[in-house]
Simulated assay, not measured.
Amino acid sequence: MIGKIRISMALGLVVAGSSILVPLQILSMKTGWWPETIILKIWHRMIVRALGMRIHVRGALSDSRPLLVASNHISWTDIMVLGSMVDVKFIARADMEGWPLIGMLSKLQRTVFIERERKRSSGDQASEIASRMAKGDAMVLFAEGSTGDGNMVLPFKSTLFGAASMAISEGAAEQVFIQPLAIVYTRLHGVPLGRRHRPIAAWIGDEDLMPHLKVLMAQGGLDVEVHFGDPVAFSKGSNRKETARLMESQVRDMMRAALADPRPSQ
């Protein structure tokens, strides 16, 4: 019964809020009357509140530009969590563009969609990401190329760091800063999530969105930690594979630290 009440209240908040915020965001994108990220932050914070999430932050988004943020990926909620806190743009799988609600939101925040299986288009996509970074956008790259179950970090794909190399080779920047970021779901209703229950927050593979969304809304009370590491400079002589391994190692260390000693719920 309580779960059904939570779902009804969360859906009511999202529907009512979106009916106001989506037109405002479209107006902002067309006219430039106010920064686009203002409405997006409000929208993301509304979703986070509807889901009953509590966010704990360690570190901060780097002020250095151009900036590529290399993060692990657990669920679509990662985007809501980050978007509620900082001004960033996202790099996402091409198929997300057609998803209900998520696809619409992605377009409204100018997400770059990449087709990882089509090598012909990868150059153009990397060029667009490089251009966006050169213009000052902090771009978030989910470097695993997939979602994990929240218990471990999957190997980072070095090919996804091609945009950093292209930004330099095209003369858009002399160097690109790459910052590691760990997203960790740690508690449910104040109780630490163990290995068995941590996948409650995860959205993996071909799992349908709506059943997963209903579970999150019915449960509520999730704690998520966001850990920002120190950025490293990527320049003309930098090795893409070594950089990917370094980012993966740092994100894994931050995740392990959060799981071993999760912040208390507040």
Rank of each mutant, 00 (worst) to 15 (best):
Y185I: 02
M210W: 15
L213P: 00
G190M: 07
R196S: 15
L193F: 10
A202V: 00
A201H: 06
H189G: 12
Q179N: 11
P180R: 09
Y185R: 04
I183T: 03
A201L: 03
A182K: 04
I204D: 10
L188Q: 13
V215G: 01
L188Y: 01
P180Y: 01
G205L: 06
Q179C: 07
G205K: 14
I178C: 13
G194K: 03
E207D: 13
L188D: 08
L181I: 04
V191P: 07
A182T: 10
V184L: 02
A182M: 02
L213R: 00
G205R: 13
M210A: 14
G205Q: 12
R198C: 11
H197G: 12
E207N: 11
P211Y: 05
P199F: 04
G190H: 05
W203T: 07
L188F: 03
P192W: 04
T186Y: 01
A182N: 02
G205Y: 10
L216Y: 04
V191L: 12
A201D: 06
V184E: 00
L213Q: 03
L181W: 09
E207P: 03
M217G: 06
A202T: 01
P192L: 08
D208F: 01
I200W: 12
M217F: 10
H197M: 14
L193I: 11
V215N: 04
L181N: 09
I200R: 12
L209K: 02
Y185W: 11
R195M: 08
A202L: 03
G194E: 12
V184F: 00
K214S: 06
R187F: 01
Y185P: 03
L181G: 00
H212M: 04
I200A: 12
G205S: 15
A202N: 06
E207R: 15
V184W: 02
V191H: 13
H189L: 03
P192H: 01
P211K: 11
H212K: 09
A201F: 05
R187D: 02
G194H: 03
G190N: 07
D208I: 13
L209G: 07
H212G: 14
P192V: 10
P211M: 07
D206Y: 05
A218P: 05
R195P: 10
L181V: 00
T186P: 05
M217S: 01
I200P: 00
D208C: 09
D208N: 14
P199K: 06
V191G: 02
G205A: 15
A202M: 00
A218D: 05
R198S: 14
G205V: 02
W203Y: 10
H212V: 00
H197I: 06
V191M: 12
G190Y: 05
L213G: 03
A202E: 03
G194D: 15
I204T: 15
G205F: 07
P180K: 08
D206G: 07
V191C: 09
V184G: 06
T186A: 07
P180I: 10
H197W: 08
L181K: 12
I178E: 07
D206L: 08
L216A: 11
D208W: 00
T186N: 08
E207K: 15
I183W: 13
R187V: 07
M217N: 04
A201W: 01
D208E: 14
P180S: 00
M217Y: 04
I200Y: 13
V215Y: 03
